[in-house]
Simulated assay, not measured.
Amino acid sequence: GEAGSFSADGRQPKFAAFLTKPVKASHLCDVLQTIFSSREKLTQRFEEINKPQFDAQMGQVHPLRILLAEDNATNQKLSQRVLERLGYRADMAANGLEVLQAMRRQPYDVILMDVQMPEMDGLEATRVICQKWAQTQRPRIVAMTASAMKEDRDACFAAGMDDYISKPIRVEELVSALNRCVTVTAAPEAKQPSVHAEGLTAITILDQAALEMLREMAGDDEAFIAELVAIFMKDSPQLMAEAAGAIARSDAETLRRAAHTLKSNCASFGAQEMARLCRELEAIGKSGDLNGAEDIHARITAEYERVKAALERLVARPQDQF
Protein backbone atom coordinates (compact mmCIF):
# COMPACT_ATOMS: atom_id res chain seq x y z
CA GLY A 1 0.00 0.00 0.00
CA GLU A 2 0.93 3.69 -0.07
CA ALA A 3 2.74 5.37 2.80
CA GLY A 4 -0.25 7.61 3.53
CA SER A 5 -2.94 4.92 3.28
CA PHE A 6 -5.31 4.12 6.18
CA SER A 7 -6.57 0.83 7.57
CA ALA A 8 -10.21 -0.31 7.40
CA ASP A 9 -11.06 1.27 10.78
CA GLY A 10 -9.80 4.67 9.61
CA ARG A 11 -6.58 4.71 11.66
CA GLN A 12 -3.20 5.30 10.09
CA PRO A 13 -1.04 2.21 10.61
CA LYS A 14 2.29 2.44 12.42
CA PHE A 15 5.17 1.36 10.22
CA ALA A 16 8.55 0.27 11.56
CA ALA A 17 10.29 1.40 8.35
CA PHE A 18 9.73 2.23 4.67
CA LEU A 19 11.23 0.60 1.61
CA THR A 20 11.17 2.02 -1.89
CA LYS A 21 10.66 -0.19 -4.91
CA PRO A 22 12.56 -1.81 -6.42
CA VAL A 23 13.90 -3.16 -3.12
CA LYS A 24 17.63 -3.68 -2.92
CA ALA A 25 18.80 -6.67 -0.90
CA SER A 26 21.43 -4.66 0.98
CA HIS A 27 18.88 -2.00 1.93
CA LEU A 28 16.40 -4.65 3.08
CA CYS A 29 19.09 -6.30 5.23
CA ASP A 30 20.00 -2.96 6.87
CA VAL A 31 16.34 -2.16 7.62
CA LEU A 32 15.66 -5.57 9.17
CA GLN A 33 18.75 -5.34 11.37
CA THR A 34 17.67 -1.91 12.59
CA ILE A 35 14.14 -3.11 13.39
CA PHE A 36 15.19 -6.21 15.30
CA SER A 37 17.96 -4.36 17.13
CA SER A 38 15.47 -1.74 18.35
CA ARG A 39 13.01 -4.39 19.51
CA GLU A 40 15.75 -6.22 21.36
CA LYS A 41 16.74 -3.03 23.18
CA LEU A 42 13.11 -2.36 24.12
CA THR A 43 12.74 -5.91 25.44
CA GLN A 44 15.92 -5.56 27.50
CA ARG A 45 14.74 -2.23 28.86
CA PHE A 46 11.34 -3.72 29.80
CA GLU A 47 13.05 -6.61 31.59
CA GLU A 48 15.34 -4.23 33.49
CA ILE A 49 12.37 -2.12 34.64
CA ASN A 50 10.47 -5.20 35.84
CA LYS A 51 13.36 -6.84 37.67
CA PRO A 52 12.87 -7.14 41.44
CA GLN A 53 14.47 -4.13 43.12
CA PHE A 54 16.85 -5.11 45.94
CA ASP A 55 18.07 -2.38 48.26
CA ALA A 56 21.05 -3.85 50.09
CA GLN A 57 21.03 -0.88 52.50
CA MET A 58 17.46 -1.46 53.69
CA GLY A 59 18.65 -3.49 56.68
CA GLN A 60 20.79 -0.58 57.85
CA VAL A 61 18.22 2.14 57.19
CA HIS A 62 15.35 0.15 58.70
CA PRO A 63 16.91 -2.44 61.07
CA LEU A 64 14.69 -5.29 62.20
CA ARG A 65 15.18 -8.49 64.17
CA ILE A 66 13.50 -11.11 62.01
CA LEU A 67 12.38 -14.64 62.81
CA LEU A 68 11.57 -16.73 59.73
CA ALA A 69 9.14 -19.59 60.47
CA GLU A 70 9.19 -22.02 57.55
CA ASP A 71 9.40 -25.85 57.43
CA ASN A 72 10.13 -26.24 53.71
CA ALA A 73 13.92 -26.32 53.14
CA THR A 74 13.68 -24.81 49.67
CA ASN A 75 11.50 -21.96 50.87
CA GLN A 76 13.84 -21.44 53.82
CA LYS A 77 16.85 -20.95 51.57
CA LEU A 78 14.99 -18.75 49.10
CA SER A 79 13.50 -16.55 51.81
CA GLN A 80 16.84 -16.20 53.59
CA ARG A 81 18.52 -15.29 50.32
CA VAL A 82 15.97 -12.57 49.58
CA LEU A 83 16.35 -11.16 53.09
CA GLU A 84 20.15 -11.21 52.80
CA ARG A 85 19.96 -9.21 49.57
CA LEU A 86 17.88 -6.65 51.46
CA GLY A 87 20.55 -6.42 54.17
CA TYR A 88 18.84 -8.60 56.81
CA ARG A 89 19.83 -11.71 58.73
CA ALA A 90 16.97 -13.89 59.96
CA ASP A 91 16.81 -16.59 62.64
CA MET A 92 15.06 -19.80 61.62
CA ALA A 93 12.20 -21.83 63.09
CA ALA A 94 10.74 -24.93 61.44
CA ASN A 95 7.40 -24.97 63.30
CA GLY A 96 5.28 -23.06 65.78
CA LEU A 97 6.88 -24.69 68.83
CA GLU A 98 10.32 -23.50 67.69
CA VAL A 99 8.86 -20.02 67.19
CA LEU A 100 7.74 -19.90 70.83
CA GLN A 101 11.13 -21.21 72.01
CA ALA A 102 12.94 -18.54 69.97
CA MET A 103 10.72 -15.78 71.39
CA ARG A 104 11.52 -16.88 74.95
CA ARG A 105 15.23 -16.55 74.19
CA GLN A 106 15.14 -13.05 72.68
CA PRO A 107 12.76 -10.38 71.34
CA TYR A 108 11.95 -10.01 67.64
CA ASP A 109 10.46 -7.16 65.68
CA VAL A 110 8.78 -9.32 63.05
CA ILE A 111 7.96 -12.98 62.44
CA LEU A 112 7.52 -14.11 58.85
CA MET A 113 5.14 -16.95 59.68
CA ASP A 114 4.32 -19.83 57.35
CA VAL A 115 0.75 -20.91 58.01
CA GLN A 116 1.06 -24.65 57.28
CA MET A 117 3.76 -26.19 59.52
CA PRO A 118 4.04 -29.51 61.41
CA GLU A 119 3.60 -29.96 65.20
CA MET A 120 2.16 -26.46 65.63
CA ASP A 121 1.00 -24.42 62.64
CA GLY A 122 1.33 -20.67 62.17
CA LEU A 123 -2.24 -19.89 63.21
CA GLU A 124 -1.98 -21.72 66.55
CA ALA A 125 1.47 -20.23 67.23
CA THR A 126 0.03 -16.76 66.61
CA ARG A 127 -2.83 -17.37 69.03
CA VAL A 128 -0.38 -18.44 71.75
CA ILE A 129 1.81 -15.37 71.12
CA CYS A 130 -1.21 -13.07 71.40
CA GLN A 131 -2.19 -14.73 74.68
CA LYS A 132 1.25 -14.76 76.32
CA TRP A 133 2.82 -11.53 75.09
CA ALA A 134 1.44 -8.02 75.49
CA GLN A 135 0.66 -6.11 72.31
CA THR A 136 3.54 -3.69 72.83
CA GLN A 137 6.02 -6.51 73.53
CA ARG A 138 5.22 -8.97 70.79
CA PRO A 139 6.55 -8.85 67.25
CA ARG A 140 4.54 -8.03 64.19
CA ILE A 141 3.40 -11.30 62.62
CA VAL A 142 3.31 -11.50 58.83
CA ALA A 143 1.54 -14.52 57.38
CA MET A 144 3.22 -16.31 54.46
CA THR A 145 1.00 -18.69 52.53
CA ALA A 146 0.32 -19.92 49.02
CA SER A 147 -3.42 -19.85 49.73
CA ALA A 148 -4.92 -16.79 48.08
CA MET A 149 -8.56 -17.23 49.08
CA LYS A 150 -10.22 -14.48 51.11
CA GLU A 151 -11.21 -16.93 53.84
CA ASP A 152 -7.53 -17.87 54.26
CA ARG A 153 -6.59 -14.23 54.77
CA ASP A 154 -9.48 -13.78 57.19
CA ALA A 155 -8.32 -16.81 59.18
CA CYS A 156 -4.84 -15.28 59.49
CA PHE A 157 -6.16 -11.96 60.77
CA ALA A 158 -8.66 -13.67 63.06
CA ALA A 159 -5.79 -15.61 64.67
CA GLY A 160 -4.06 -12.30 65.44
CA MET A 161 -1.66 -11.92 62.52
CA ASP A 162 -0.91 -8.35 61.49
CA ASP A 163 -0.10 -8.65 57.80
CA TYR A 164 -0.16 -11.08 54.90
CA ILE A 165 2.09 -11.85 51.93
CA SER A 166 1.57 -14.58 49.37
CA LYS A 167 3.97 -17.30 48.22
CA PRO A 168 5.98 -17.42 46.10
CA ILE A 169 7.36 -14.28 47.72
CA ARG A 170 7.42 -11.12 45.60
CA VAL A 171 10.25 -8.80 46.59
CA GLU A 172 8.19 -5.61 46.44
CA GLU A 173 5.47 -7.20 48.59
CA LEU A 174 8.00 -8.34 51.19
CA VAL A 175 9.67 -4.91 51.25
CA SER A 176 6.29 -3.24 51.83
CA ALA A 177 5.51 -5.64 54.68
CA LEU A 178 8.90 -5.03 56.33
CA ASN A 179 8.48 -1.28 55.97
CA ARG A 180 5.29 -1.55 58.01
CA CYS A 181 7.24 -3.07 60.91
CA VAL A 182 8.77 -1.17 63.81
CA THR A 183 11.25 -2.11 66.52
CA VAL A 184 9.46 -3.67 69.49
CA THR A 185 12.14 -3.16 72.16
CA ALA A 186 15.32 -1.19 71.54
CA ALA A 187 18.52 -3.18 72.04
CA PRO A 188 20.43 -2.00 75.16
CA GLU A 189 23.52 -1.08 73.15
CA ALA A 190 21.60 0.85 70.51
CA LYS A 191 22.55 4.49 70.09
CA GLN A 192 20.00 7.25 69.98
CA PRO A 193 18.80 7.59 66.37
CA SER A 194 19.88 10.60 64.41
CA VAL A 195 17.38 13.11 63.04
CA HIS A 196 17.68 11.47 59.63
CA ALA A 197 17.08 7.99 61.06
CA GLU A 198 14.03 9.23 62.97
CA GLY A 199 12.60 10.58 59.77
CA LEU A 200 13.08 7.25 58.03
CA THR A 201 11.28 5.48 60.88
CA ALA A 202 8.39 7.91 60.55
CA ILE A 203 8.17 7.23 56.85
CA THR A 204 7.91 3.48 57.49
CA ILE A 205 4.87 4.16 59.71
CA LEU A 206 3.31 6.86 57.51
CA ASP A 207 2.90 6.37 53.77
CA GLN A 208 5.10 8.91 52.02
CA ALA A 209 2.82 9.24 48.99
CA ALA A 210 -0.10 10.18 51.25
CA LEU A 211 2.06 12.75 53.06
CA GLU A 212 3.14 14.29 49.76
CA MET A 213 -0.49 14.51 48.66
CA LEU A 214 -1.41 16.13 51.96
CA ARG A 215 1.36 18.67 51.54
CA GLU A 216 0.22 19.45 48.00
CA MET A 217 -3.37 19.90 49.15
CA ALA A 218 -2.16 22.21 51.94
CA GLY A 219 -0.18 24.31 49.47
CA ASP A 220 3.08 23.63 51.35
CA ASP A 221 1.63 25.47 54.36
CA GLU A 222 3.44 23.75 57.24
CA ALA A 223 1.43 25.66 59.87
CA PHE A 224 -1.81 24.37 58.35
CA ILE A 225 -0.45 20.81 58.32
CA ALA A 226 0.53 21.20 61.98
CA GLU A 227 -3.06 22.26 62.72
CA LEU A 228 -4.39 19.17 60.99
CA VAL A 229 -2.03 16.97 63.00
CA ALA A 230 -3.17 18.65 66.22
CA ILE A 231 -6.82 17.99 65.33
CA PHE A 232 -6.00 14.34 64.56
CA MET A 233 -4.25 13.95 67.93
CA LYS A 234 -7.19 15.56 69.72
CA ASP A 235 -9.92 13.56 67.96
CA SER A 236 -8.27 10.13 67.84
CA PRO A 237 -8.23 9.43 71.61
CA GLN A 238 -11.87 10.56 71.80
CA LEU A 239 -12.87 8.24 68.95
CA MET A 240 -10.92 5.35 70.50
CA ALA A 241 -12.64 5.98 73.84
CA GLU A 242 -16.00 6.08 72.08
CA ALA A 243 -15.22 2.75 70.41
CA ALA A 244 -14.12 1.22 73.73
CA GLY A 245 -17.36 2.33 75.35
CA ALA A 246 -19.38 0.88 72.48
CA ILE A 247 -17.59 -2.46 72.85
CA ALA A 248 -18.33 -2.49 76.60
CA ARG A 249 -22.02 -1.78 75.91
CA SER A 250 -22.20 -4.15 72.90
CA ASP A 251 -23.28 -1.13 70.83
CA ALA A 252 -22.33 -2.30 67.33
CA GLU A 253 -23.59 0.76 65.43
CA THR A 254 -21.70 3.27 67.59
CA LEU A 255 -18.59 1.10 67.23
CA ARG A 256 -18.98 1.05 63.45
CA ARG A 257 -19.32 4.85 63.23
CA ALA A 258 -16.35 5.56 65.49
CA ALA A 259 -14.12 3.07 63.65
CA HIS A 260 -15.19 4.46 60.28
CA THR A 261 -14.34 8.06 61.24
CA LEU A 262 -11.01 7.05 62.75
CA LYS A 263 -10.18 5.01 59.65
CA SER A 264 -10.79 8.01 57.41
CA ASN A 265 -8.62 10.26 59.57
CA CYS A 266 -5.77 7.74 59.55
CA ALA A 267 -5.86 7.45 55.77
CA SER A 268 -5.41 11.21 55.40
CA PHE A 269 -2.01 11.00 57.08
CA GLY A 270 -0.95 7.73 55.47
CA ALA A 271 -1.26 5.75 58.70
CA GLN A 272 -2.04 2.65 56.70
CA GLU A 273 -1.68 0.02 59.40
CA MET A 274 -3.90 1.91 61.83
CA ALA A 275 -6.41 2.49 59.04
CA ARG A 276 -6.40 -1.25 58.26
CA LEU A 277 -7.09 -2.14 61.89
CA CYS A 278 -9.90 0.44 62.01
CA ARG A 279 -11.35 -1.12 58.87
CA GLU A 280 -11.39 -4.49 60.67
CA LEU A 281 -13.10 -2.93 63.68
CA GLU A 282 -15.63 -1.21 61.43
CA ALA A 283 -16.45 -4.54 59.78
CA ILE A 284 -16.98 -6.13 63.19
CA GLY A 285 -19.37 -3.33 64.13
CA LYS A 286 -21.21 -3.72 60.86
CA SER A 287 -21.61 -7.47 61.39
CA GLY A 288 -23.09 -6.98 64.85
CA ASP A 289 -20.92 -9.76 66.30
CA LEU A 290 -18.37 -8.03 68.54
CA ASN A 291 -16.18 -11.08 69.15
CA GLY A 292 -12.55 -10.01 68.72
CA ALA A 293 -13.36 -6.29 68.87
CA GLU A 294 -11.56 -5.76 72.16
CA ASP A 295 -8.32 -7.28 70.84
CA ILE A 296 -8.37 -5.19 67.66
CA HIS A 297 -9.11 -2.07 69.70
CA ALA A 298 -6.01 -2.79 71.81
CA ARG A 299 -3.93 -3.11 68.64
CA ILE A 300 -5.32 0.19 67.36
CA THR A 301 -4.38 1.86 70.64
CA ALA A 302 -0.81 0.57 70.40
CA GLU A 303 -0.50 1.57 66.75
CA TYR A 304 -1.82 5.05 67.54
CA GLU A 305 1.15 5.66 69.84
CA ARG A 306 3.53 4.87 66.96
CA VAL A 307 1.56 7.05 64.55
CA LYS A 308 1.45 9.90 67.08
CA ALA A 309 5.23 9.76 67.59
CA ALA A 310 5.82 9.74 63.82
CA LEU A 311 3.53 12.73 63.28
CA GLU A 312 5.23 14.65 66.09
CA ARG A 313 8.59 14.11 64.38
CA LEU A 314 7.19 15.22 61.06
CA VAL A 315 5.74 18.43 62.48
CA ALA A 316 8.92 19.17 64.45
CA ARG A 317 11.13 18.84 61.38
CA PRO A 318 9.00 19.66 58.32
CA GLN A 319 12.06 20.59 56.25
CA ASP A 320 13.45 17.08 56.73
CA GLN A 321 10.30 14.98 56.70
CA PHE A 322 7.68 16.47 54.38
Score class of each variant (00 low, 15 high):
Leu178Gly: 11
Glu198Val: 07
Ala148Cys: 10
Val195Pro: 07
Thr74Ser: 00
Leu277Val: 05
Lys263Leu: 01
Pro22Gln: 14
Leu97Ala: 11
Gly245Pro: 08
Pro139Arg: 02
Ala17Tyr: 03
Lys14Asp: 07
Met161Ser: 05
Ala248Phe: 02
Tyr304Met: 02
Met120Ile: 09
Ser38Leu: 12
Ala230Lys: 07
Gln57Val: 07
Arg11Thr: 14
His196Lys: 14
Arg104Leu: 08
Cys181Met: 11
Ala16Ile: 11
Phe157Pro: 11
Leu214Glu: 10
Phe18Leu: 06
Ile169Leu: 10
Arg215Tyr: 00
Gly87Ser: 11
Glu48Arg: 10
Glu47Asp: 13
His27Arg: 12
Ser264Asn: 11
Asp295His: 10
Pro63Ile: 06
Val115Gly: 05
Glu273Trp: 05
Gly160Pro: 10
Val171Met: 04
Asp163Met: 03
Asn50Ala: 08
Ser7Cys: 03
Ala202Ile: 02
Gln137Ser: 13
Lys191Ser: 15
Ser79Ala: 15
Leu255Ile: 05
Gln135Leu: 03
Phe54Ala: 02
Thr136Ile: 15
Ala226Thr: 10
Ile141Leu: 11
Val128Ile: 14
Glu151Pro: 01
Lys234Glu: 13
Gln60Ile: 13
Glu227Phe: 09
His62Leu: 07
Ala94His: 08
Glu305Gln: 15
Arg313Ser: 12
Gln101Cys: 03
Gly87Tyr: 06
Thr301Ala: 07
Arg89Gly: 07
Glu280Gln: 14
Ser79Val: 00
Val307Tyr: 00
Leu277Cys: 03
Pro63Phe: 04
Pro52Asp: 07
Arg11Ser: 14
Pro193Ala: 05
Leu64Cys: 04
Glu222Ala: 13
Met213Ile: 03
Thr136Glu: 15
Ile296Val: 14
Asp320Ile: 11
Ala310Ile: 04
His196Val: 15
Leu228Phe: 01
Val142Ala: 01
Pro139Thr: 01
Ala16Pro: 01
Phe6Asp: 10
Arg249Cys: 07
Val110Gly: 11
Arg276Met: 09
Ala3Ile: 13
Lys14Thr: 14
Lys191Glu: 15
Val184Asp: 02
Leu68Trp: 08
Leu42Tyr: 11
Leu239Gln: 04
Asp71Asn: 15
Leu174Gly: 07
Val61Lys: 14
Met240Thr: 00
Phe269Glu: 09
Thr301Ile: 00
Arg65Val: 08
Arg276Asp: 10
Phe232Gly: 02
Ala202Phe: 06
Ala226Asp: 09
Asn265Arg: 12
His260Phe: 01
Val115Arg: 04
Asp320Phe: 10
Lys51Trp: 04
Gly122Lys: 03
Arg317Gln: 15
Ala158Tyr: 00
Met233Leu: 12
Gln137Ile: 03
Thr185Ser: 06
Arg306Gly: 05
Ser250His: 08
Gln131His: 07
Arg257Ile: 12
Leu112Lys: 00
Ser250Asn: 13
His196Glu: 15
Ala25Ser: 09
Glu2Trp: 13
Lys51Gly: 13
Ala259Lys: 05
Leu174Met: 11
Met213Ser: 07
Arg89Glu: 12
Lys150Asp: 02
Arg127Asp: 09
Ala248Pro: 00
Phe157Gly: 03
Asp109Met: 02
Pro139Gly: 04
Pro52Gly: 06
Phe46Asp: 13
Ser194Tyr: 05
Pro168Glu: 07
Glu227Trp: 04
Phe232Lys: 03
Ala259Tyr: 04
Glu305Ala: 15
Thr185Cys: 02
Ile231Thr: 12
Leu100Ala: 03
Gly245Met: 09
Ala69Arg: 10
Ile165His: 01
Arg317Phe: 14
Ile169Phe: 08
Phe232Pro: 02
